[in-house]
Design a protein around this nucleic acid. Structure first.
Lengths: 193, 193
DNA sequence: CTATTTATGTATCGATCATTACAAAAATAA
DNA sequence: TTATTTTTGTAATGATCGATACATAAATAG
């Protein structure tokens, strides 16, 4: 392989860029911010990502999808997948104050991107729908097993969970307080039992 | 009163500016956008609003608070205030596609403003908390009257509603479809009865 | 009328935006 | 070694950002 060796690897740039996007959102994150965070100058940056800022953002979003896929794998081998989902939602209450303010980057993106960039909005919506579908499938499964008594359709309950997820994304900014969130989460999760 | 007569009245500028902010959010709405929408040039704009873009945004936000106050007044003379609240939430399902995408400007602002402008974020959070308190009070009242059977505390139920409100703000962008939203809303409202 | 006051329209400010141009650096291939 | 390839660092691009400067328009006060 010829050529000057790579210092700033793709994966690392994306990881660092994700942090910036998570804090500031897409529009407010400047190339200057990204270059400062990643260490890479404009040369390396555009050499690596011909698509510029938008491409890096999409890759940062996809990175989250991978994290979500990993969770889905965990679910598939779990004996009580619904409890795993509930525990994951419960874990939000214990997040740091800073993480409460940041919220979920995918849910944030759906809100930010309306009328701004429909590609990026569609990407984020798609991921949320995948998460919703995961919820729905697990609920359906548990209903068949008889672990859940509720007769409400799994589709409605799946949408109930993704709606709660997105609502919690704002509630935690209103009340970045573990106890408040904990009570709220328990009450809402109790609906599915 | 001396001086050249005013063509572009404050109230009208705010109203037109609100539409722009609602569509694009704060950051993405440029002064150029605002001037185009309001008709007022930079001269009139900064003569009227010394605080510039930020001041106009704050006034546009306060405008929404007034609309909310009006609703609160309706509630106070209603015989079944909870039903009024429920109907208001139900009315979201029937909104136009465009309105689904725009969502609630206050909820949007909370998400957008994190780490961007803490004044504007605090304004929006404050309004959401006022709406939440309105929910809580009405629920408490109806519980005392015995109209509601649920024993869950009004504080939790109030937060449940504001969380749902914010969650719906994203769900309606995922599914700008009246029937989907209608079913979802009925299921979630049934929790409070 | 003239003086004063206020609003408007336009030109322009410096800063920053995302992106590009390009030469030097640093590796391998021949 | 020399030629080639790729990455890096820096300078500069034109566009647009929010905001200001300022002359003029258009009213009233005296």
């Amino acid at each position: 392989m010829r050529g000057r060796p790579t210092i700033y690897e793709d994966a690392n740039i994306i990881k660092k860029a994700q942090e910036v996007f998570w804090q500031k959102g897409y529009s407010a994150a400047s190339l200057s911010d990204l270059q400062k965070a990643t260490g890479a100058g404009a040369g390396s940056f555009y050499n690596t990502f011909k698509g510029g800022k938008k491409e890096v953002f999409q890759k940062a979003i996809q990175e989250r999808r991978l994290a979500f896929d990993a969770f889905k794998k965990e679910l598939s081998v779990s004996e009580s997948p619904l409890e795993l989902i509930k525990d994951f939602i419960r874990s939000i209450a214990q997040a740091e104050q800073n993480d409460h303010l940041k919220g979920c980057i995918i849910a944030n993106t759906v809100v930010e991107m309306t009328f701004i960039d429909e590609d990026l909005e569609a990407n984020a919506v798609q991921i949320l729908k995948e998460v919703e579908q995961m919820f729905t499938e697990v609920i359906k499964e548990e209903q068949t097993k008889g672990t859940i008594k509720t007769q409400t359709s799994p589709e409605i309950l799946g949408k109930y969970l993704i709606t709660f997820w997105c609502g919690l994304n704002t509630l935690r900014r209103m009340y970045p307080d573990e106890n408040v969130l904990k009570d709220q989460i328990e009450m809402q999760l109790a609906v599915i039992s």
